[in-house]
Design a protein around this nucleic acid. Structure first.
Lengths: 189, 189
DNA sequence: CCCGCAGTATACCGATCGGTACAACACCCG
DNA sequence: CGGGTGTTGTACCGATCGGTATACTGCGGG
């Protein structure tokens, strides 16, 4: 991994996360990285190749963390707190990657953005597995696993958005417990 | 309103909602609308003007509906059901507009996309007002109005996404009550 | 020393970008 | 029928798009 590759990956992440794959410009990426276009094409072959490399490189760490945090440990509350904390942390430390994934999900599922959609699928599958495991202990959850996974993620994404806009403090130790409490018991009580 | 204007507005909505403002092509919009570029520039002046017109034209109806549905009627459950039903309905009948708004919120807040962000702000303000009014009847909600507004919207958006992917049936009469029940009382009970 | 290869810059390709000059157009008022 | 007025198509602008041919650099192994 040369420094040119690393700079291109960082610049690519910034460009793709700003306006999505289609609107990103390879010239901009190269200028930001401080290299010329042939360097980009030498390492990554195409804009699409750069996108895949960006997702693979910057997404590997967060994906590992999400996969670890999604394992059901026998208690719904502690597991969801761990997962929510991981998501919020990824949304804070890897903000560009997080936004890139959300952005990509809203766009058309072209072949180029497939790597990003695959990451989202893995995250979602892990959450569905979590709720499936939890449903073995809590029968009244059964049959709604995918809905729980999606709505949990929706709630977390809303809080991530609040963190981005500065409306809540992501380092507040009460944030994650309150989020999970809201998910499990609602806004009352 | 000539038929050319209407076709341009429809084509513009489709193009902007696919990949966002930056990635949309005026040539594509004109081709889809079946008119030449000078026609677009005659009516709307610029790509930016077309975007503003698209948001104004296709967003007026949904904005009115959301504003009406956001008025607190004295009962949290019925108000939230009405609002959630309105959001889900807009997400179904005006899918492109809904996706355009979500997409725009994730991108940089450039001057061009300001009209879309203003619509989102109005929707959010209405929801905050709703929860502020509700907090007068339920003191334990006080101080969390903006968090409730954001998380309610996040939950609704998650369900809208499930409707788009076909995982839930948006016309199911149980959907809205279950959504609101989950928001108010959590996934248990 | 020099060969060979990975890495990089200059300069360019055809295509498309947002935007426009201009002429022909339909159509309504007189 | 004449003459605007408002709408539209043809053809074009400079800039930028993704991508590339080619040559030059630095550097490690014979």
């Amino acid at each position: 991994m040369t420094s040119s590759q690393a700079r291109l990956l960082a610049a690519g992440l910034g460009a793709f996360s700003a306006n999505g794959f289609a609107a990103a410009s390879v010239a901009d990426v190269c200028a930001t990285a401080g290299v010329a276009k042939p360097t980009l094409y030498h390492f990554f072959g195409s804009k699409e190749g750069l996108f895949a490399a960006v997702v693979s490189e910057h997404g590997a760490g967060p994906s590992d963390r999400v996969a670890q945090a999604s394992r059901y440990d026998g208690d719904v509350t502690t597991t969801l707190r761990r997962l929510a904390g991981t998501y919020l942390d990824v949304g804070r430390t890897d903000q560009d990657l997080y936004r890139l994934l959300l952005l990509t999900r809203l766009g058309p599922p072209t072949a180029a953005v497939r790597p990003a959609l695959d990451v989202l699928d893995r995250w979602n599958s892990a959450a569905v597995s979590l709720f499936s495991a939890a449903a073995r202990d809590h029968g009244n959850m059964r049959g709604r696993e995918s809905r729980y996974a999606a709505s949990f993620r929706g709630l977390v994404d809303a809080y991530v958005g609040l963190c981005w806009s500065g409306e809540v403090d992501p380092t507040d130790p009460l944030l994650v417990p309150e989020l999970v409490h809201q998910f499990m018991h609602g806004i009352f009580s």
